[in-house]
Design a binder for these strands. Structure first.
Lengths: 182, 182
DNA sequence: GCTTCGAAGTTTAGGTTTGAAGTCTTCAGG
DNA sequence: CCTGAAGACTTCAAACCTAAACTTCGAAGC
């Protein structure tokens, strides 16, 4: 994972001003929200990356551990399910599992009841790694939000889930319009 | 850019419940905000990816065009500056510029006043591509936020920039605590 | 002037992901 | 049974990234 520490970009205000200069047909308020969302997420991922790196795992491996843990005991999933869950191709999943097996985070075995299927199962070590990562992450997240009052947190959560519903239940066609899928 | 269309994850509510089950020491309200932020961003990137793909460019190339345009006329930057701006290594920047030169989106020439430096300059075609992409993106973004009232937009922008300031001026150490850098 | 150091880009080697092709297993019909 | 088809996973080649070594140029110091 590349060290994105040295990332240097203009301030949000400067960037909005530049957008106004180069593309007048743009609502600065909308752009502010979108740009802030994007930046916030990038910075958070950098932070998560440092934390997981300190535990000796990559962000990619953390994603796999997360999917397995959240699937609930006995913490088993097939490679295809994992791939769909993480938005990877099956090929990438195969290699990622290879590495994680070598590191003892998961095991891979054939399903004896259906020998086409493969079962990826979290090891005790893998679960422990996830718990450690979660402990770090939860401290970071609480710190991040510490300036927000309870009311602000509620409001923010509500607005974000509203936006999320809007993108999840609809995907834009090539023209950019959101069109319902279901 | 892999087609992440088939991404399949539990609903946000299910995921929060799973977190509670597997890691009790977690504020569901915090986790809701963080998870929604992360998902929202991922979905938006998928949407942007489709739009830029429809224009025959990748998300990666779009980032470069954006940096050049926002730098202002005459739309020139050095590879190192671009690399820092995008959070890439110089090596990656070299190859990315290679491709974009081949596609006619930018030109590369040596700075005659300082022959170590290289100048990457946006072409008319590159600028036009960016404008097209922005037209699509702005429609998408406006659609995304259409359910939010003016007051909600203002409040959301304010809260997000507040969070952004908190991560930008501080980066967590390996222990997860935010610690001021300046 | 000569040397040394640092900065800017490029090249090279290695690793991860993708898309396409291939293998193996299961299942439904003849 | 045997065959064909579909599904689950793996293998392979190509694309793109990172880290590190290398090349070149410019700026200081003696």
């Amino acid at each position: 994972m590349g060290d994105t520490t040295g990332i240097s970009e203009p301030t949000l205000e400067e960037q909005i001003a530049a957008y106004q200069r180069e593309f007048q047909d743009l609502d600065p308020q909308v752009e502010k929200i979108v740009s802030a969302l994007s930046r916030l997420n990038r910075r958070m991922n950098v932070a998560y990356g440092r934390q997981t790196a300190a535990l000796g795992i990559s962000n990619a491996e953390w994603e796999v551990l997360k999917a397995l843990v959240l699937s609930g005991a006995p913490y088993r999933m097939g490679p295809s399910d994992l791939a769909k869950r993480l938005g990877l191709t099956p090929a990438a999943m195969t290699h990622r599992i290879d590495r994680m097996v070598a590191e003892g985070l998961v095991t891979r075995e054939r399903d004896e009841s259906n020998r086409v299927r493969v079962i990826v199962e979290l090891t005790g070590e893998g679960r422990e790694k996830w718990l450690e990562a979660m402990r770090l992450a939860s401290v970071f997240e609480e710190d991040l939000l510490q300036d927000l009052s309870a009311e602000e947190r509620t409001a923010l959560g509500e607005v974000l889930t509203r936006l999320l519903r809007r993108v999840e239940h609809a995907q834009p066609d090539a023209g950019g319009r959101l069109s319902d899928l279901d």
